[in-house]
Nucleic acid binder design. Structure first.
Length: 294
DNA sequence: CACTTGACCTGTCCGC
DNA sequence: TGCGGACAGGTCAAGT
């Protein structure tokens, strides 16, 4: 669930909440959640000060004064939640999904000198955090292979078209989900963007004219900018760095809106399967036809 | 190489 | 009410 807008929302929250704080103690529950050697972790993290919080695709990069970077992938159910004095042990306001911490999903705990805490929670244990020397981060396999950031000025329909050439025989949805084509798109924003561009998710890439790819590129930007403005999408698990939900899901046009009317033409939204994922579409706005674009 | 499928996990929901 | 199975979706390894 955390896709680009959710990870970006966590990033801006962390930037405000943890920069300048010094780590005093680290707890990690399993090797999988934090695979570095525990001694290395203690050595590189304890007494380190947080210098900056960056994002690339769906990955968070927490740069430390020790010239190490904590790389974090939230995968589907990961959360990074900060607790300082003002919200220590905070209960469950309506906009929160997180109660007392740690809880049974807590995988890693970073305690700062001032007793504030950063919790890494992950119900399904798919997420991870890992330490790398900051200078080596660009050489991480993922960082070398990942595609362009859709919200940068350099991202255009032309660039998307070019990137899609590597996946021209697959369906457009699978191609958009491929992080080496384009960074940061997941299931929610793939469905939303394809609805915006009026393209059926199962359409084979090579059958889509360039003008339509331009539309896809701009829809991705429109949808993601709105999602960031709304603090991301809380479908089930996602919360920001303060433990609060995002509200984009209330503005979604197709995602999780099966059996409801299409906001454009009132046709009932369908839920199908495409690229191995639950896929939402309007059968009238996004017709499945091979000769559609002739 | 291009593409698809299954595995990784746990919580939730649905049908019996 | 309990229980089995499907499902949720990001990424990578393994298979076609």
């Amino acid at each position: 669930m955390p896709e680009l807008p959710e990870v970006e929302t966590v990033r801006t929250g962390l930037e405000r909440l943890i920069i300048g704080r010094e780590i005093a103690d680290v707890f990690a529950d399993t090797v999988k959640s934090f695979p570095n050697d525990p001694e290395e972790v203690a050595q590189c993290l304890v007494d380190a000060r947080v210098e900056s919080v960056r994002r690339r695709a769906k990955v968070l990069l927490i740069d430390l004064s020790t010239r190490y970077t904590l790389v974090v992938h939230l995968k589907m159910t990961g959360q990074l939640v900060f607790r300082g004095e003002q919200n220590f042990g905070a209960g469950h306001p309506n906009d929160s999904l997180v109660g007392m911490l740690p809880d049974k999903s807590t995988r890693v705990i970073l305690t700062f000198r001032d007793k504030s805490v950063l919790y890494f929670n992950d119900q399904r244990k798919f997420g991870w955090m890992k330490l790398y020397p900051t200078a080596e981060v660009p050489n991480i396999d993922f960082m070398r292979k990942v595609g362009p950031e859709p919200l940068e000025d350099s991202f255009t329909g032309e660039l998307l078209y070019e990137r899609l050439q590597r996946r021209k025989n697959t369906c457009i949805k699978a191609a958009l989900l491929d992080q080496t084509v384009l960074a940061g798109v997941g299931n929610i924003y793939a469905d939303e963007s394809l609805w915006g561009a009026k393209i059926h998710p199962a359409t084979i890439v090579k059958n889509i004219p360039k003008s339509k790819i331009n539309n896809v590129a701009s829809e991705i930007q429109i949808v993601m900018r709105l999602a960031i403005e709304k603090g991301g999408s809380t479908d089930r698990n996602y919360v920001n760095a303060e433990g609060k939900k995002g509200s984009y899901i209330d503005f979604a046009r197709v995602f999780r809106r099966e059996n409801l009317p299409c906001p454009r033409c009132s046709t009932t939204i369908l839920k199908t399967r495409c690229a191995g994922r639950g896929t939402h579409l309007c059968p009238v706005c996004q017709p499945a036809a091979t000769t559609l674009f002739q």
